[in-house]
Nucleic acid binder design. Structure first.
Lengths: 192, 192
DNA sequence: CCGGAAATGAAAGTGACTCGCATATTCGGA
DNA sequence: TCCGAATATGCGAGTCACTTTCATTTCCGG
């Protein structure tokens, strides 16, 4: 990774920090992207090139790409739900626990702001197609029709787990929240 | 329902039909709301009062409110997943089969247009909170933590069922698609 | 038939997001 | 170390979804 990418990442981190602070202070709608640009000292168009949308200023996570790698390592070697569960734990739990306060704050703001929560859900939906394809390939032929449900359910479990983790203030470890959510999924038949 | 509501509904149906036609012809982004307003002969601000957003021009369904009633009738009398499944079948299947061509067309356009599919998913998320509360109340205390997963999974099943119905061109009855999707949910434990 | 309530139309405004272009910065290779 | 190519940034103008306000019209109950 050269200077280019390094500078870009640094600018994005800085922009995100400023954005989160201002959003908390005055509300998501009341802060214009242009103000943030001025405060950070870059052009508004650069922010859009970096983040795409105003919502992504909050939702962006530098390391989100690593999830795919963890998934690829496990899908096909384990049953899909437990593969995805393990991949989430491996690629998210430790990292989120590391800067717990920042992530708790960020997630809290997402869950408490309709517009942001909506955008987050929409992001999950975009991930779903990709995950569905990967799951389908890892299932025996007779069960392939279940792929969209399995993939969707897995992302739902993650969402619920993050919600529980943040609303408990991080008291329950994130890894435990994820495992719990996935185990609830597998018990759906018993609940009926 | 007086003249007021009747006129409003008629105008909304007309607007939706014109919108769907134009969107298909020239693409969702290429059609301005103001053009639609001119063509229908109403003000753009009226369209926004009626639909709220451009996406709702496609997503709006006059009878969506009836789903809640069907849910209320069954939740608490049956296990939640089968209650929700039955409610969906009762309140959607027949109605969608009635004007099959229109609904297939509408859903096809939603599923093939990222922006619309995203907005649809966001709408589901808004319904989820409400459904979660209803499910929670219908569950025995020891299982209440499962409510968000149950509600989210049910909406996921509906989404997958509609997708399958539309992509099969309506060949498989919608009721069957819904029942299949929910039965896949209950088998998640076996897939692991 | 009339007075009040609600829906509509018209118009101006806001701000997220895009695009094209000139400039500056970085990268790979000589 | 220097140079040309690739790429990122700043700037400015533009588009359009959506909001708000207010005057006008339409509908409802009495």
């Amino acid at each position: 990774m050269g200077m280019r990418e390094r500078n870009r990442r640094a600018a994005m981190r800085e922009t995100q920090r400023v954005a989160l602070r201002r959003f908390r202070e005055r509300g998501f709608d009341a802060v214009r992207v242009e103000e943030l640009a001025d405060e950070v000292g870059i052009a508004a168009s650069t922010i859009y090139r970096h983040f795409g949308t105003k919502e992504q200023l909050v939702l962006w996570d530098e390391h989100d790409g690593e999830i795919d790698a963890a998934l690829g390592r496990r899908l096909g070697r384990q049953p899909p739900l437990s593969a995805i569960c393990d991949a989430f734990v491996e690629s998210l739990a430790d990292r989120y626990e590391e800067d717990r306060d920042f992530q708790l704050d960020r997630l809290g703001y997402v869950f408490s702001t309709e517009q942001l929560h909506g955008a987050a859900v929409e992001g999950d939906y975009r991930a779903r197609d990709e995950l569905t394809a990967a799951v389908r390939a890892s299932l025996p032929r007779r069960q392939r029709d279940a792929a969209p449900i399995v993939a969707g359910a897995a992302l739902l479990a993650l969402e619920v787990a993050l919600d529980r983790w943040q609303s408990s203030g991080g008291a329950t470890p994130l890894a435990e929240c994820i495992v719990d959510a996935f185990s609830t999924l597998e018990r759906l038949g018993a609940i009926g």
